[in-house]
Write a protein that binds this DNA or RNA. Structure first.
Lengths: 361, 361
DNA sequence: TTATTTTATACAATCGATTGTATAATAATT
DNA sequence: AATTATTATACAATCGATTGTATAAAATAA
């Protein structure tokens, strides 16, 4: 790393004088117009209680000085912040980033900004962040819980304080909060069904931590679909906690040592599917004919890896939009009671080469 | 999409009573202890001006009631918000998401939260968001400008207000603000140099809008390196505004119609490189032997596409850390003058199959 | 015991905008 | 002209925490 020293055009030309500048406030406008701040406040809101002349004058002056009301002051008085807090495990995962875009799509036009916090999958950090979001900082919270989280008391406090809360994807099922998710069970069924349609019978399954609803549901979908088709499940082919690329690779290595190789892998994540594919390919396995693969998440790179990976799309953008909509409804509702809602979106099977076989019937 | 109706356990069991609950404030504690809010405020800050007995009592009561100071009130009084505003084109791009993680890495432990805004590459939206961030909402801004932005008056206002501002990646060179970027020129030189090392002589170049510093610098690096090696540049092989996958594909289609095909493509983005690769591969071009490719950005999928794509890593995480560090320094500085700094990180060439040829010398 | 210092707390102003109520100045009504 | 209604603005309280100054009480010194 290097530092560019700014070119010296003249004396102090690159220095900037810091804001000794005092804030220009509503009372400054009032002073200039020989009136009081209350009048100006109303004038700027175009209140009919103020004469047209005064309104024009105040607005003109405000424009001239580039005046905007101070957020802290007005939100203290009005009791809201026009900020939504978002708490997710990690922002650089495509799924979460996309959900966020969906949230923004609804929140921004409604005049809400978005405060984003990352738990980095840490329970402690999540707890601390929730606490931090609580006291007047945000008008509501949208969250997907960290993978470590099994105790939900911090979220219970949010609810107890009456702060609107919406969960998405990784939700806490026992809490009385709105939730938006996709039907992970159905997604898993679709994937496995598809593999079976393509002639696979001995299907391996990679999943994630079973205390997280999404992984549990996907695994359940796998078992149920296998059962439905009368297919036997080989315990050695069920690998839990394989959701990273590396874990997928390790899992495949283990599997390749078995005498009875599976003819397909249904993975609860695209990264582990990828790891497994690369590992299998290296070992000379022909994909999809000897072994078919389906992932879960429909990562953007699924379509251009070799072979392109069949996956389940989670409609992340839509999840974000729905979550934001529910939250804003709750924030802006004047009802004294609130009935939490649970929305379940249908996932979509995106079929690509990794799973399409010439069926040998 | 469907909605799950909550199971009815009993009367109103799924309803939640909204916060009629009044806020528990510092004065409530004061009342309970027969003292005033100023005493409690000091007690909670462990001020030596308050007796130990009172401090203990106040802290105990605060803990009991789960009291935390109201953010709006304390930030109004203290004149800060402990929030950093981030303004980026789009959060679901891996580069930006990673920079953000880097920022968070520095900001969070320093007690700052992060307010994220997306301009969606729109100048109007960017202007509006900057305005929105200005009046007491944040203590400083970190931004990468939108692709449409050529007028910087909104940022000038930020500087004029004395609000700390740091640019990264896509910076505005003329403004007196700190900047953090990678050496795009050097990155381009490295990529082209590498292609030449691999025997390429007739190198095409895809780039982006030339009013953006990063694309301009990459293109300059390309031209200079070609010149340095005495290689001729064919105007038909220079495609500006090709930074999406689709544009890359279109550009490649055009190129494939030429009589004199290039033996390499240096693209200023990985997505356009990908589009070009897929298109070329479809047309039967052998990569890298007939045509080598290098991209720019080192997207996470670079390593697992076919063939793996050589690219330039931008050290996004480090950029974020540096930008946050500069910003926090500026926020917390008590100096009356501020000298903007410009940090330039070295990019890194990540060599993969797409560009490594058996050199035919 | 009185004067002086120390200690602990109360009082009051402040941050900047908002909003209910009061009042002065007009205008309309009888 | 006197009374009422209307209009425009001023006054003051408020949101909740922070912080400088004043004051009462206790402790020390004279």
């Amino acid at each position: 790393m290097r530092e560019i020293s700014a070119p010296k055009k003249g004396k102090n030309s690159n220095k900037r004088f810091m804001a000794a500048r005092k804030k220009y406030t509503i009372s400054d406008i009032a002073r200039e117009l020989n009136t009081t701040s209350s009048t100006i406040s109303r004038a700027l809101q175009d209140s009919p209680r103020i004469s047209l002349k005064m309104r024009k004058a105040a607005q003109e002056l405000a424009r001239l000085h580039n005046y905007e009301p101070d957020f802290r002051a007005s939100s203290l008085r009005k009791g809201n912040s026009k900020i939504i807090g978002i708490l997710v495990p990690k922002i650089d995962r495509h799924f979460f980033a996309t959900v966020l875009s969906g949230i923004d799509e609804i929140a921004a036009p409604a005049g809400y900004s978005v405060l984003i916090c990352q738990s980095f999958e840490s329970f402690e950090k999540e707890k601390q962040l929730v606490k931090n979001l609580m006291h007047g900082r945000v008008d509501g919270i949208i969250s997907s819980i960290s993978i470590q989280t099994t105790d939900y008391s911090h979220f219970e406090q949010v609810i107890a304080k009456g702060l609107p809360l919406v969960f998405f994807d990784r939700v806490c099922e026992s809490l009385k909060a709105s939730k938006v998710m996709i039907d992970d069970y159905q997604g898993a069924c679709m994937a496995v069904e598809h593999l079976i349609d393509n002639g696979c019978r001995n299907i391996a399954h990679f999943s994630g931590p079973q205390h997280i609803n999404v992984y549990r549901d996907r695994t359940r979908g796998y078992f149920d679909t296998m059962k439905k088709h009368g297919l036997e499940v080989n315990d050695q082919l069920i690998i839990k906690d394989a959701i990273t690329r590396d874990a997928g690779c390790q899992a495949m290595k283990k599997i390749l040592k078995l005498k009875n190789l599976p003819d397909a892998v249904f993975s609860s994540g695209d990264y582990s599917a990828l790891g497994a594919i690369l590992c299998a390919r290296d070992a000379g396995v022909i994909i999809p004919d000897e072994m078919a693969f389906t992932g879960f998440a429909n990562e953007p790179w699924d379509s251009f890896i070799d072979p392109p990976l069949t996956s389940i799309d989670q409609h992340a953008f839509e999840i974000g939009k729905q979550a934001a909509t529910l939250l804003l409804q709750q924030i802006e509702s004047t009802d004294s009671v609130f009935v939490p809602r649970t929305l379940v979106l249908s996932p979509e099977l995106v079929i690509r080469t990794s799973s399409v076989r010439k069926v040998l019937t």
